[in-house]
Amino acid sequence: MEIDVIFKIAAVGIIVAVLNQILSRSGRDEYTMITTIAGLIIALMMILPYVSTLFSYIRSVFDL
């Protein structure tokens, strides 16, 4: 269930890394920061439901 999310996030990370390499090689260094932030936001959006379900589950199990 969480295996594919791991793959997706790893893929996003690698893509951003490669993209940054390409951008830095081609001289447009200012875009690397933008792509990094964009990739990070995508990854965070992907794991948000997991973390929220985890915390709500812990809350229900331990009735915190």
């Binding site: 969480e2 999310v5 791991i6 790893a10 990370g13 990854a43 965070l44 992907m46 794991i47 973390v51």
Partner: peptide, 9 residues
């Protein structure tokens, strides 16, 4: 981010 996701999963 990957670490957080793995531990959560």
């Amino acid at each position: 981010v990957l670490e957080v996701c793995t531990t959560a999963g």
